[in-house]
């Protein structure tokens, strides 16, 4: 879901900055401990693969996710002064809070899922196994308004149920990329007119 924000940011950013300036600006990206983010992504992906094979990972993956989230959050916090990253932090925090309140997993609303998702996926959700990160919400779910309750479907090009945290993250990503591409490469301006020696 984060990719939507990245894509949109890149498109609008490149339109505004131009191809060459945009690429130049993109190369000047500077996030403290930025290299950790790809590792976190890899970690998540690895977890997804491993949990089917080892019961150990299936059992504890809730905790491992918490570790990944806390790491990501603290990195975002360190970089919160860059435009957009503070918003991403808020979005991740919203998602994190609802997952924490529900044993490390994200509740999905049946209405939203039914509205836009593949029935096979819904069956999987209802049976309660597989799909690592998610579960179907019910009366006992806490903070359900922070869960995946927003149905995204046609005319939007993708079908998905997302949470408000996801929306906020995307807004942040969009703004971050936009400001990144919007940065002017240092113009050679002198504050004084040329005849002022």
């Amino acid at each position: 879901m984060v990719y939507d924000g990245i894509l949109l940011g890149l498109i609008v950013g490149f339109i505004r900055a131009g191809w060459k300036n945009g690429l130049l600006a993109l190369s000047q990206i500077n996030i403290r401990f930025g290299w950790v983010f790809p590792l976190l992504l890899l970690g998540q992906f690895g977890l997804y693969l491993l949990q089917d094979k080892f019961s150990f990972f299936a059992q504890f993956n809730g905790y491992i996710y918490i570790v990944i989230y806390v790491t990501g959050l603290s990195l975002l916090w360190l970089n919160r002064h860059q435009k957009g990253l503070g918003i991403i932090f808020a979005g991740v925090l919203l998602n994190f809070v609802v997952m924490l309140a529900n044993g490390g997993r994200m509740p999905v609303s049946l209405e939203a899922a039914q509205a836009v998702l593949d029935p096979i996926y819904i069956d999987m959700l209802m049976s309660g196994d597989a799909v690592t990160k998610h579960f179907l919400m019910d009366e006992s779910t806490r903070l359900s308004f922070l869960g995946d309750i927003i149905p995204l479907g046609p005319p939007y090009p993708r079908s998905q149920a997302i949470s408000i945290g996801d929306v906020v993250i995307n807004v942040g990503v969009f703004l971050f990329i936009l400001q990144l591409l919007g940065k002017k490469s240092k113009p050679n301006s002198n504050s004084l007119p040329e005849n002022a020696l």
Binding site: S144, F145, V167
Partner: peptide, 15 residues
């Protein structure tokens, strides 16, 4: 309190 669909509209209006 709101139903889930109510929350979706709520978010939309806040935005």
């Amino acid at each position: 309190h709101l139903p889930n669909s109510g929350w979706v509209m709520f978010y939309a209006l806040v935005a």
